[in-house]
Design a protein around this nucleic acid. Structure first.
Lengths: 191, 191
DNA sequence: CCTGCAATTGACTGATCAGTCAGTCACCCC
DNA sequence: GGGGTGACTGACTGATCAGTCAATTGCAGG
């Protein structure tokens, strides 16, 4: 049953968020997922492997949402904005998942392999940036740096929205994007 | 002996970075600090309290460095740049401490109290931002949002430098700042 | 030299948990 | 229906660790 593996990941995701993943025993995950303790270890060789699966699952869920939200055509500005708003959208819809993702990313539990797996999920944005740079829309800056900065900026906007729930989501999202865009664009944006 | 408490914090900081703080038993911390197991609990009521002390210690060390590095006068641009470069400087000088700080900030181990304690360490930057906004140098944006974005951007630059050790530190630092500055400045910066 | 006190010690406890494994069970094919 | 297969079970183990506490040490003041 493939569903059992998925159920374990789903349950673990929920419990990791509720209790922190260091305080979530594998026995509890198994029980809440409706399987025996030992069964968990039929699907995952170790707790670390389960944590990694949770991490990849979250990242993929985000990437899928992002891909769906972003317009496939239009100006670089608009397409990048689409990714930006889509990313914030997902995080707002799943604040628990986003928080967990942030913790997992930094944890020592996640191996290099899994972390790298996540990298190309955002390959499309990287391509878009490269394209925009050669066509002279944005400044020539190391694309890797740009991507890191962009991700951090998105994360910061989400963090702000989380700690200030009364803020207007859409406005904050757009403001954060425009700040970034003005920072990297060669031509002044028409604001 | 006040030195014993400091020694415990210092040792814990090192071990937390080397092994991750979930895999660092209190017994080991005590032994490496040259005191008995029980003595640790004379100075800290629990492991969590020790972790919190480590967190505050790191944050303070950073804040002190920052305060020393930033120019007290000059244009807003230059003073903000001073903070920016100073922050990156500290992180480059103590990559282990910076990494640990990032982990601790997100961990559930850190209580609200300790996290809030850290907030006003960067009060000076917040003031500077507010000042600049009223004097019309930068765009009117929620100062809290701006501060969050700035911190994230600094963190991203540091992260990039960590994962790309061969990169020119100073150039990356300045580039990341200029991107941010262009994003928030009203008047075009003279680049 | 003694007394009292606070700091220090480290063996110990009680609890927790990741991971194991011998056995059960459901299902499929002959 | 029977026997072979592999998913599943859950009690158990071995190890780890935070935190305790009775005993000891070292020291200051008389």
């Amino acid at each position: 049953m493939i569903a059992k593996r998925a159920k374990l990941i789903e349950t673990a995701t929920r419990l990791f968020h509720e209790r922190g993943f260091w305080d979530t025993p594998t026995a509890l995950i198994a029980r809440e997922a409706g399987v025996a303790n030992g069964t968990l270890f039929n699907y995952f060789p170790s707790k670390a492997a389960l944590v990694e699966a949770v991490y990849l699952g979250l990242k993929q869920s985000w990437a899928v949402h992002l891909q769906a939200a972003a317009p496939q055509s239009g100006s670089v500005h608009d397409r990048l904005a689409g990714y930006w708003l889509g990313a914030i959208d997902w995080a707002r819809a799943h604040p628990d998942r986003h928080a967990l993702l942030g913790q997992l990313k930094l944890s020592d539990e996640i191996g290099e392999g899994a972390r790298a797996d996540g990298v190309d999920m955002f390959a499309a944005t990287l391509e878009l940036i490269g394209e925009a740079m050669t066509s002279g829309v944005i400044r020539p800056i190391d694309p890797g740096l740009l991507k890191t900065l962009a991700e951090a900026q998105v994360g910061a906007a989400i963090q702000f929205l989380t700690t200030h729930p009364e803020s207007p989501v859409d406005e904050i999202a757009r403001t954060s994007f425009e700040i970034f865009w003005r920072g990297i664009a060669l031509a002044p944006s028409g604001d």
